[in-house]
Design a protein around this nucleic acid. Structure first.
Lengths: 193, 193
DNA sequence: GATGAAAAATAAAGTAGTTTAAGAAATTAT
DNA sequence: ATAATTTCTTAAACTACTTTATTTTTCATC
């Protein structure tokens, strides 16, 4: 099991002794998702929060016209899952699938609750993870309200320079909230400068 | 100091003894903001997270044309603040002001850190608060991506039925990401049904 | 209760982004 | 390598929403 990334990330925020690390590790299960494979489908109950070792996942909804809308990307060193479905054990409203072959470490709800109880430091760790996620989302909401599609695209490639090379452009469009056709047009316009 | 609301909210998630409640209380300061008064201005450093006892605050940005974009409303029983500015002690990118006379209880960064240290149960409380906030924001992001302005407006009045009566329509428009003129048009269209 | 200021309504003209459709390019599978 | 599928590009017609300007209504304050 490849634990380096997640343990490094944890070590940035809380201090654990070897026993606690081993205990945490014992609560995780590993999963591999092939490209285009699913981590979670809308309507299913989200059994796990997943930490990403490698690859790229996207969380999205599908509207009544069949169009996909990407709420978030998750890449190495980050976590994902339908948190509402996970916490309430109700059907998920988002689907999560893989844009690349992806390897995750998962923790179930029961095990996460045990972990909070047995190693309270993890309350702190997840509190900090959630703070970061909250801030990132708040900035994203502001982006969608205050900026044009062109500005949002420029901000995207600036903020996630590596990601644009790794995923199809239509996924970037689905994240920006525009059509692939319009993104193509924007790129053409921006290239001629 | 009116503590009912916040203490009730805390009691839903963690158990505190009287001593801990008193200690928590001792770390809070009360503040009253008149309607149109400011809790925080863009560029200032956010010194406090605020729990709302009564009233209504809005967190917004102002674009280069002077247009306001509302990232969130905060009403009774909720909290607000520019979390990024608060955590990093760097200039805020959002402004927070009052749409009604508002009463808040505030905690400073130093006191919150003390609180986490002295009463670890608060790690859990804030973790849960952040989970709820994260979920609400994720749903909001999905709304703005997947729905038209009309659908978003209908969802808004359904989800916050009381709020529409309390605040000017132009603030609802700034939250939905449309102009007040277009919201007015939508309302006229919807009324004639 | 009058007065001034802010908010809401209306309408016409304009634009950012969508839709549709068809072909070219790139990627994946055989 | 070739075929099949998916992705990207281009362009014209279209629409959801904006902009600008004017009028009416509501609200706060003296």
């Amino acid at each position: 099991m490849k634990l380096d990334l997640i343990l490094q990330n944890i070590a940035k925020h809380i201090q654990l002794d070897e026993k606690e690390i081993d205990y945490f590790t014992s609560l995780l299960t590993q999963k591999t998702i092939k490209r285009k494979g699913f981590l979670l489908k809308e309507g299913e109950i989200c059994g796990y929060e997943s930490f990403i070792n490698s690859g790229c996942l996207r969380t999205y909804s599908i509207d009544n016209k069949g169009v996909e809308h990407i709420v978030m990307f998750a890449v190495e060193d980050w976590w994902t899952g339908d948190l509402y479905s996970f916490l309430t054990q109700t059907p998920a409203s988002f689907t999560i699938d893989a844009l690349e072959d992806t390897e995750v470490l998962q923790i179930s709800k029961a095990n996460l609750e045990k972990l909070y109880y047995d190693v309270p430091g993890f309350e702190r760790f997840f509190r900090i993870m959630l703070q970061n996620a909250f801030i990132a989302q708040q900035q994203r909401i502001n982006q969608t309200l205050a900026f044009t599609a062109e500005e949002r695209y420029l901000h995207f490639i600036h903020k996630f320079p590596q990601l644009e090379q790794r995923i199809p452009q239509k996924q970037v469009a689905a994240y920006l909230g525009i059509t692939p056709e319009f993104l193509s047009m924007l790129r053409k316009k921006l290239a001629g400068r």
